[in-house]
Structure formats: structure tokens, C-alpha cells
Design a protein around this nucleic acid. Sequence first.
DNA 1: GAGAAGTTTGAGCAAAAAATCATCCTTTGG
DNA 2: CCAAAGGATGATTTTTTGCTCAAACTTCTC
Lengths: 324, 324
Amino acid sequence: MRDPVSERRDRKLDLAAHAAWLYYIAGNTQEEVAVKLRVSRQAAQRLISLAVSEKLIKFRLDHPLKGCIELAEALRDKFQLSLCEVVPSSGSDVDCCKGISTCAANYLETYLTAKTPTILAFSSGRTLRAMVEQIPTMDQPQHKIVSIIGNMSHCGRAGRYEVVMHLSDRVGSQAFPVPTPVVATNVEERQLLQTQRSFITVKNLAEQARATFVGISHVAWNAPLHQDGFINDDEVAELIDLGAVGEIAGWAYDCQGVLLQQGTNRRVASVPLQQPAQRLMIGVAGGEKKVEAILAALHGKLITGLITDERVAQVILAKLNLRG
Amino acid sequence: MRDPVSERRDRKLDLAAHAAWLYYIAGNTQEEVAVKLRVSRQAAQRLISLAVSEKLIKFRLDHPLKGCIELAEALRDKFQLSLCEVVPSSGSDVDCCKGISTCAANYLETYLTAKTPTILAFSSGRTLRAMVEQIPTMDQPQHKIVSIIGNMSHCGRAGRYEVVMHLSDRVGSQAFPVPTPVVATNVEERQLLQTQRSFITVKNLAEQARATFVGISHVAWNAPLHQDGFINDDEVAELIDLGAVGEIAGWAYDCQGVLLQQGTNRRVASVPLQQPAQRLMIGVAGGEKKVEAILAALHGKLITGLITDERVAQVILAKLNLRG
DNA sequence: GAGAAGTTTGAGCAAAAAATCATCCTTTGG
DNA sequence: CCAAAGGATGATTTTTTGCTCAAACTTCTC
């Protein structure tokens, strides 16, 4: 003979299974379940929640993006992100940048197509530029498109991945570019540039932005900032020396995501980043090279939203599980 | 390039998948899903119900009784049963009768342990008797336990599977046995027996019963009714000739479940069955021999509840699917 | 391009589900 | 055998969910 208490429990679980079947699989309301099982409505509700908590009933998502969704939600949880999107990684980094930029473009479109006047801020770079290419033309003069970073080297050469002017062209919104070089020649020049009226205006707008879209880059020999001539060989070496692993809008940070006090950061003439970020800062970046930079930006709370690819998300979560 | 309308649809399904994941798997409320997905609450709700209707999210019951539950609900649906329980079939018919009677006993106990005075009616037979054996003793004088069938052959011999007296002994309730033989010698005797005051009382009570538990038997050479001496060889042959396939409380019916007008039915001195049954009539029976009898009883609406075993349920549903 | 038909959207409301609470019952330890 | 603790139960309230409807927006047709 069986232990009477565990037998009672088994019978209850059997009933719970039946209730859960009727509720989830047959689609009955709890009232109907109660009638069919001849118990009170609240007994039915308790049985159903028992079945769920005892995992008698399982939920399974059958969709190609299942993995991406799970990764995105895991990242959202770990870093308290208010937005996290993970797109499937196709083979090459180029393709995956495409997916990320498409996803970011879709998200950006929701702001742009709205009638409510919105201030949106952007850094520059290849990924954001690719995002802009996917925004359809429209006529939305009510929005303000603000840059948080200039588009020249300190010798005056323009960068090739300008975002704000292109975007405002497409959507017919007011553009507010940053009229300074990315990195000033010296600290005094930076201070001078940042007292210009136009810079103050842009800075104020950026600080009110509903959302800020930023690229995230790694810091290394031939990394974008270097390749595009915004910083020179010596400056790269110095940053690496100082422990820089990543960079957002010209601002370099270490492996904990802490903004450096030294090196080029003393002369960066972009709109300052808040640490931790107080508004929606959406990092848009992918590709395995950038894993460390992205992870550090998350740790340092430089971003509160992330759009990345599956592979990066996997690696980041794997690193977290290793290190606790 | 993709068709823009199916692309829009895909994006919606992706979102729906995400919403369903958050709702069912992560356990968020629709409000929380809406915030995370940056849509309105009702948009979230539409996405979730889309995911369900598009089968992006699947529910699976993980429980040993899954199959039994599904069979029971299929039977409940097909025959509008207000109660249907299917218990696992173990190897032998004896074991499965044990399972069925245990299940029936559990169900019966819910009435017996209640304080509200309840009238319960019973036929007799091996299965019901086994059910009674599993009822614990208690003291519930408020109930009335009524028989719908006598317990003697017309020559006065008592049957071995009496139910009502045994049950009332156990539970301390008032017993109302039927004081007549199962089958009277002739029509006149039946009429006489059925005008007795005690019979009228029992009949009235039976017609008010909250639930009536009946065994279901097949009609064949050496079937219970015959074996136990309630009907003789000639009567068996006559019933088979008339197309009887099953019998409840002595009342024989054909393969459509229609009560016979001829044969022993003209002399059965039990409480009449209603066709279709107006009250809760619970058939308690299992074992492959009885499939046809049970199926016919269901078709003829002689019962509105069924407790049977898995094998019988499977065979019945298979037959239905074959014949439409 | 204008207008009509068919969708989609969000607000408000009704229904359903979950949580809370007081009561009752069972069980266990003295 | 009693008392107290722990659990279960059903009534009630609160929260969540599903539904309806009117308005806005697409999309297709002319």
C-alpha cells in the first residue's frame, strides 16, 4: 500500500493535469474547467496554477527566432536593458551588420513615422549609416535629428560615415550636426569648441533626446576611429596602453566600461556620455570583434538598449556564465 | 527583394513570437509585455492571441495520464457527457476493473463526505461492488442510498454482488433496497410488484437521485446476468435474438442503445431507465468484452457519465472515427 | 488622385483570473 | 485526547484579460 499523503498528492496532480489540459489545450475558461471537473472555480484556478508550477504543462515556442528572443531577454535581464534585440547571425560580419541595421532601422522608423515631434540623437559609423540607408524617404519636419559627434578629424578631413545629415535628408526633419572635430588638437581647443553656441544647442538637444542611437567600436590598430583618421597611430597606442577596449562616439572606455580620464578622452569634442546613462542609449553593433567592447559598454551602463547579433549575444552570455 | 506584404506579416509574427515568449514562458503580464515590446497593451494582447492561433506557441501536457485525459475529453465531447473519466488499462480485465472501481470510489466519496444530504442511486454488479469495497467507513446518516435494481432471481435466490446494503453499512446512510426480483416471472407479477408501496418509494427516490451509478454489462452466454442466475438460458437466447448487446440494471438494449420492448424487458422489475437519461447516470464499466455494450449505452443516451478504462476508450473512439 | 472597402488601432467596458482574507479542517506533537 | 500549526477552502476584492465599437488608416479601384 502507498503512503496516503503522497497518494493524495498524486491524485491532486492528476486532477491538475486534467485542469491544465482543459484550460490550455482545449481552451476552456477556468469556470468551464471547474464545471467539468466538478470543483469550485477557485479550486480549478489553483489546480491550473499548480500544474504550471509543477511543470506538468509546458510552453514551447516554435519559431525561427526562438533562440534570438531568448538571448535578447537574457541580456535584457542581466543588464536591465529597456530594449534588446538580437538578430540571427548570418555567415559574415557584413551580412550580420546588415541584419542589425535593418532591425535598428525598423525600430527607428517607429519614432520617425509618429506624428509627435521627437528628438533623436545619433553617433556616426558604418552600422548606423547602413541603418539610415534602409529608412524610406518621408516628410516629417516635426522631428529633430541631432548628432552627438562631429565628422572631421582635427586636420579638417570629413568622415565617410556621416549619419545625421543623411537621415534628415531622407525624412525631412531638422538636422543638428556637431560642428567640431571628433578629437581636438589639445584640451584648450576642446574647451573653446565646446563653448560655441552651436555646440551648446546640440548638446542641449542631445540631452533631451527620446533615444540616442550609438555605434560601438573596439579600440585597436585599424579599428574604425583609427582607420578613418580621427585619431593617429600614437593615440591608438596610448589608448590601448591605458586599457581602452571600446569606444562610443569617440569616448574610449576600459574593460569595465568605465570612461577613461586620460588619453584622447581629454580632447574628445563630442557630446559627453553619461555614466550610467540616464536616457535611452541604444547600442547598435555586432560582429565577434566587438564582443569585448559591447560587453564593457553594458557593464559600464553606457548603454541602456542593445541591438546586436546572435553570435555576439551568445558569446557575451557565455562569458557572463563563466565569470559569474 | 521580398514581397512587402508577406514581409510585414513575417515581422508581425516575429513580434508575436516574442510577445508569446514573454507572456507564456517568462510569465509576464500583457501589460509588461507591452512595455517591453513598446506597443500598446491591446496590441500585445493581439500579438499573443495571434501567436496562439498561428500555433507559434505550443502547449504540451507532461503527465502519465495525458492519454487518458485526452481520451476522456474526446468521449465527453462526442457524447455530451457531463462526466467522463478514463483510467489506465493495466494488463488484465481484473486489474482494470480495480482501477475503474477506485476511480469511481474516489468520485463517489466526494458526494459521501459532503454534509449536504444527498440521494444516490446504484445498480449492482461486480464493478460497483468493487467500488464499494474501497469506500472507507464513515458516519454520514444524512444521505440516502437507493437501489434501482433488486437482488434476487425470480426463484428467490440472492445475488452475490449487492451494492446498496454494503455501501450504506460502510457510510452509515439510510438504505433503500429494491425488494423485488430482477426479472419477474410474468408481466402481471411485474405490475403487481411495482405497485408495492416500498417499490414506489424507492422509485421516487431514485428519480430524485443526485447521481446514479450503474454497471454496464454485455449480453451473451455466461454474461453476468445469466451467470448470476437472474435470467435463464432461454431468456439469454431470446435477448440475443432480439439484438440485445448490453444491459443496465437488467434492462437490455440493442446496438443503438435503444431499450428493447420485447423479451425480458417486459418483465424487468427494476426502476425504469429514462431514454434519454435526464439526470446524471454514471456508467462504470471496463474491459474489452464490454466495448459494444458501453458504446451502445452512450449512443442511446442511457448514460450521461462514464468511468472506463483506456483500452475501451481507445476502441470506442476508433470505431467512431471509422463509422463517422 | 478621390473615394470606397477592408484593416488596424486604441478606448472603454465586461468577463475572467489572480490575490487576499477569514474560516474550517486535518494533522502532529504533546 | 487536546491544542496548535499548517493547509485547504470558499467569499470577496483587485488585477488582468478579452471583447466591442468607433475612428483612423491602408489599399484598391476607377
